[in-house]
Design a protein around this nucleic acid. Structure first.
Lengths: 337, 337
DNA sequence: AATGACTGGACAAACGGTTGCGCAAATTTA
DNA sequence: TAAATTTGCGCAACCGTTTGTCCAGTCATT
């Protein structure tokens, strides 16, 4: 009732040294069978539970992984975190959560607190406008490994897992070309994002494969807000060539874009066709789900990133051998299309 | 570079006792101004950071809150967790996450691990089929307070925050009555769920207010699966009276029900009108969003539950004065309806 | 019987910080 | 000027566990 039993308590009751009890509980070979059993029995009887905070302190390890990501309410991240959690739990690690809400300052603060909490390692997906990585660089000094996933920083010498948007984009654009579209608009993300660049490259390659010429003015950068999307749509719909299909940055952007198109009196899938990224589960309920969507395997990304981090922690992987895993994205065509 | 500076290190350099340094850093009044400043300056210079694990150990506190909930991918919970996190962070608490995936066994295991990790308190939303609460009762022995939210156990002497579905249901049914509907079907949840009972009561009261008679055969219990919903719809549409409006258990159920109605050749919002619960952000993208939806304030619930837990921890609230907060739900009518 | 090798366990330090108590010097009070 | 009080700091214990080292007894070997 009052204080939980400690190793010392057990030692006292059995007239043993604390060290002996500790070793006995760990099945250390130097402890005789008789005493070992005696100790283990009493421990069970007293419902002894090792004080983890003491162990954390002593071992300089907390068996805790910090997760920093923008928004759990985005389906991608809530799926990713399931992959992370499941993998971490398998190795008896716990998961400390922090949402940056896409705010760099908050991201910095979270990292700071997590460092102070002495997490063993960090899994990070960047806030949308983070361009300065000092708060992550700083972790090197503390030997806290970081594995980035999905939204990764644009710098060398990091561990990361990301999906390659290029392959999915090629598939997406090719599908549209195959269905006869020739003027394809792209609502891309912020220019500096690697994911945006990959989409651009994918677009270019798909056109090239068909010996078609790539028109940069059809590829507009937006900021992923509703307003930004609407502006991008306006720009595309007033293009001198008539845009008949649009590749949207993700399913959310796609929906905003669709809404705008409908407002402009366009008929979806007739006047204009949409393809996007993410493949959200809710898209089956949507008024106008995209013709196809590029699946990014969030669960798998979370799982893979965690596996890498755990191996880094166990020393199986050297910290200076940078692990960079790319998961190919894949186009999923909506059922019945 | 190698090991971070400790309090002892600072003490040695300044020829002081560790205790003096500790007190100086805490602005203890018994330490002279001169030494205090000297200490603080050197600390800054060496970039001293207190070792939190040592402090956790010493203070028997971890400034960590455990969160156990069914599924982050459900919009309700990802919103709730934001409320939890924001509130916790304000008081410098961190948040340890565990998803039960609606599996009682996993829930038990998570609670056990969190107990071992010495979380200061727990925020819990039950797995759907948890009926045995021993793993939570056990926490009393360890003086770990628990605050339940949304999905709360059916027992006395607990702290909880939950929304009252009754008020929202009254508003929902009243709205339909006001718009002329007289035969209103309800797709309710499992009978034993408190939330289902509240919906029933709300339905009855709304009818009563208008001196109308409540017809129990219009209120059918379903199991929230797609199949269950379709069966319920079939039952309602074949009712001897012609059902012109339906109150669905939540937005997901609503969508399945709408789908069924469309298949049956009914025209939504003309032949039949839907109202539901949850008020999901995605509903604005849905093909046939409900006319109105009962908002349950997930962020607020998470926030409130956390506030209670923090006050319990700070001693502002006595552990045996059970805090039971009910947040009234409220009908939100879809824009333009 | 003496030497050596094991066996089983005790002792103590260490992890980093906090805190009650004691004590000398400085200052105030009577 | 002596006594009382305050100021400023050091000493040491403590939180619970792990781990390197040391010691005493037991056994086997020659």
């Amino acid at each position: 009732m009052p204080n939980p039993p400690t190793i010392k308590e057990i030692a006292k009751r059995l007239n043993l040294a604390a060290s002996t009890v500790s070793r006995a509980l760990h099945d250390h070979p130097r402890i005789g069978l008789r005493t070992r059993l005696k100790v283990q029995e009493l421990a069970r009887e007293l419902q002894y539970e090792p004080n983890q905070t003491a162990i954390f302190f002593q071992q300089k390890k907390t068996f805790t992984l910090g997760i920093v990501l923008p928004e759990l309410s985005e389906a991608f991240f809530s799926a990713a975190i399931s992959g992370i959690e499941d993998t971490a739990n398998k190795s008896n690690y716990m998961v400390l959560l922090g949402q940056s809400h896409d705010d760099t300052e908050r991201e910095q603060k979270i990292v700071e607190i997590m460092k102070n909490h002495r997490v063993d390692g960090l899994l990070v997906s960047l806030a949308k406008n983070t361009v300065n990585y000092a708060h992550f660089e700083m972790l090197r000094k503390y030997n806290i490994p970081v594995v980035f996933f999905d939204r990764i920083p644009n710098m060398p010498d990091i561990h990361y897992v990301a999906s390659n948007m290029e392959s999915g984009t090629i598939q997406a654009v090719s599908l549209l070309l195959q269905r006869g579209h020739r003027v394809i608009g792209m609502i891309n993300g912020p220019e500096k994002l690697i994911a945006s660049q990959q989409r651009t490259t994918g677009y270019q390659k798909a056109m090239q494969q068909q010996r078609l010429k790539y028109d940069a003015s059809l590829n507009v950068n937006a900021d992923l807000t509703k307003e930004g999307t609407r502006n991008a749509m306006q720009q595309l719909l007033s293009h001198k060539r008539k845009v008949t299909a649009i590749v949207a940055f993700n399913d959310y952007v796609s929906q905003d874009a669709v809404q705008y198109a409908v407002e402009q009196g366009l008929e979806i899938n007739k006047d204009i066709t949409f393809v996007s990224y993410a493949n959200l589960p809710i898209s089956s309920y949507m008024a106008f789900p995209p013709l196809a969507s590029v699946e990014q395997y969030p669960y798998l990304q979370g799982q893979k990133a965690t596996e890498i981090l755990l191996e880094l922690l166990s020393g199986k992987l050297a910290a200076d051998r940078y692990q960079q895993t790319v998961i190919d994205s894949r186009l999923v065509i909506a059922p019945g299309r």
